[in-house]
Simulated assay, not measured.
Amino acid sequence: MNTDRGGDEPSVVGGDVVLLAFTRALRAAGVPVTHDRAHGFLAAAALLGVDDQRGTYLAGRATLCAGPDDLERYDQVFTAFFGRDGLPRPRPAQSEGVPGFSGLPESDGSGAGETAEEELVRARASDAEVLRHRDVATLSAAEKHRLAGMFATLRPRPPVRRTARHQRWHRGQVDAPRTLRASLRRMGEPAEIEWRRRGVRPRRVVLLVDVSGSMSGYADALLRLAHRFTQVGLERRGVVETFTVGTRLTHLTRAMRIRDPERALVAAGETVPDWSGGTRLGETLRFFLDRWGQRGMARGAVVVVFSDGWERGDPTLLGEQMARLRRVAHRVVWVNPHRGKAGYEPVQQGVLAALPHCDDFVAGHSLAAFAELSEVISRA
């Protein structure tokens, strides 16, 4: 298939006219059809043959749809455009001097190109939104690279707790001592009433990230999320502690405090010895509570466990340690990457043992799910 005009628009001959009109109808229906996808669709349809209705249908689904949300609209537009009896017959090839249909207009200096440019901008924004909802374990290397830059858009707010000390405020409780001192400075004359409230400070957050083999597709994204939580915590004087769990427990807080995320992940990779190994959640959780948690790190903290619940050890031990963790922590959140998938049922022994002792059971498979998790933690 030939291209002209600098590669911005495919030349239209024969059945290409119909196919380009179809891509324009899809764009009008809300499917983000870009120039590159239109080129890919025409090339795929040419290989399969324009007269092959099923081949053209499958070629369009494979090249024009950016995500699951586009499939239903694609089917509706395809049925409305081509009907149920088959594709329309392709028209004869046009001569070079006859202007043909173009679903991808080029700029001619009159402002018509601005519409196409606006459509491209909307398409890119839509692509980013689709990527936010994609399962991170299914992304290609290029998509993971794009997603890594999007973690900077997350702005988690650390949870807060009330302190014993009071602070001045514009409403709340009457601050009797300060009000009395102000009156004495006026020689007993009535003074303006002073108010106070209980002070607040960030609550500690503890992240336990499963890096076993079954979680290998999510480990990179989860550590980037832990890095983001740590950096925001440092900005707002909060405390975020990060551990990895697998066949052993590894303390990663020092690596997560490195400002650059790529350097932080390299440091984490050099620190963790059990990447993609087995899962002994019960044993590692007991070790965490014995050495760090019960002594103060988990006491009054929000503890977040990232795991799919595939436990190689005794699930009874995991249930006992989760009950022990629940007694000392302020709130326990279990994040399962499969929780947000259609048809998921918590049937794993580890999940069944842990759920009775969790305050929240949330999804953790996409950037959008991570944003929702941030809200859950901030409200804890």
Score class of each variant (00 low, 15 high):
Arg73Leu: 08
Ser110Gly: 14
Gln76Arg: 15
Asp69Tyr: 00
Tyr74Asp: 01
Leu64Lys: 03
Leu71Cys: 01
Val77Trp: 03
Ala112Lys: 12
Arg91Val: 15
Phe101Pro: 11
Leu87Met: 14
Phe101Gly: 03
Ser102Ile: 05
Asp70Val: 06
Thr63Leu: 02
Thr115Phe: 11
Leu104Gly: 02
Pro90Cys: 01
Ser107Ala: 15
Thr56Val: 15
Ala66Pro: 06
Arg91Lys: 10
Arg84Trp: 06
Ala112Glu: 13
Asp70Pro: 08
Glu106Asn: 12
Ala59Ile: 04
Pro105Asn: 01
Ala62Pro: 03
Ala59Asp: 05
Gly100Tyr: 06
Gln76Glu: 15
Phe81Pro: 01
Gly83His: 03
Gln94Arg: 15
Ala62Cys: 04
Glu96Gly: 15
Asp85Cys: 06
Pro99Leu: 11
Ala62Asp: 09
Arg73Asn: 00
Gly86Pro: 08
Ser110Ile: 03
Pro105Gln: 04
Arg91His: 09
Arg84Ser: 10
Leu58Asp: 04
Gly109Val: 10
Phe81Val: 00
Gly83Thr: 04
Asp108Gln: 12
Pro90Phe: 06
Gly67Thr: 00
Ala93Lys: 11
Pro68Cys: 00
Thr63Tyr: 02
Glu72Arg: 11
Ala93Gln: 10
Gly67Lys: 03
Gly67Ala: 11
Glu106Val: 14
Ala62Ile: 01
Gly100Asn: 09
Pro92Gln: 02
Cys65Trp: 05
Gly97Arg: 14
Glu96Val: 14
Gly111Thr: 07
Gly100Lys: 01
Pro99Phe: 08
Gly103Tyr: 04
Gln94His: 12
Glu114Ser: 12
Pro90Arg: 10
Pro99Thr: 08
Ala112Ser: 14
Pro88Gln: 05
Asp75Phe: 00
Leu71Lys: 00
Asp108Phe: 13
Leu104Phe: 11
Arg89Pro: 11
Arg84Gly: 07
Gly103Cys: 07
Pro88Arg: 07
Pro88Glu: 05
Gly86Gln: 05
Ser107Leu: 10
Gly100Ser: 15
Ala66Asn: 08
Val98Asp: 12
Ala66Ser: 14
Glu72Phe: 09
Ala59Met: 02
Gly100Thr: 15
Pro92Thr: 02
Asp85Tyr: 08
Arg61Leu: 15
Phe101Ile: 08
Val77Ile: 14
Glu96Trp: 13
Gly97Gln: 12
Thr63Val: 07
Tyr74Gln: 00
Pro99Val: 11
Arg61Gln: 13
Arg89Trp: 10
Leu71Thr: 05
Thr63Arg: 05
Phe101Thr: 05
Leu64Asn: 04
Ser107Asn: 14
Pro90Asn: 05
Thr63Gln: 07
Ala62Arg: 11
Leu87Asn: 02
Val77Phe: 04
Leu58Glu: 09
Ser110Asp: 13
Phe81Tyr: 15
Gly109Ala: 07
Asp69Lys: 04
Leu64His: 00
Leu87Phe: 06
Pro92Trp: 03
Leu64Tyr: 00
Leu104Glu: 05
Phe101Asn: 04
Pro105Lys: 00
Pro92Met: 03
Gly60Pro: 07
Thr79Trp: 00
Glu72Leu: 13
Pro68Lys: 02
Glu106Pro: 09
Cys65Ala: 14
Leu58Pro: 00
Phe82Leu: 00
Leu64Gly: 01
Val77Cys: 03
Phe78Asp: 06
Ala93Cys: 07
Pro92Cys: 01
Thr79Gly: 06
Gln76Asn: 09
Arg89Ala: 13
Glu114Ile: 15
Thr79Lys: 06
Gly103Gln: 04
Cys65Asn: 04
Gly111Phe: 07
Asp69Trp: 00
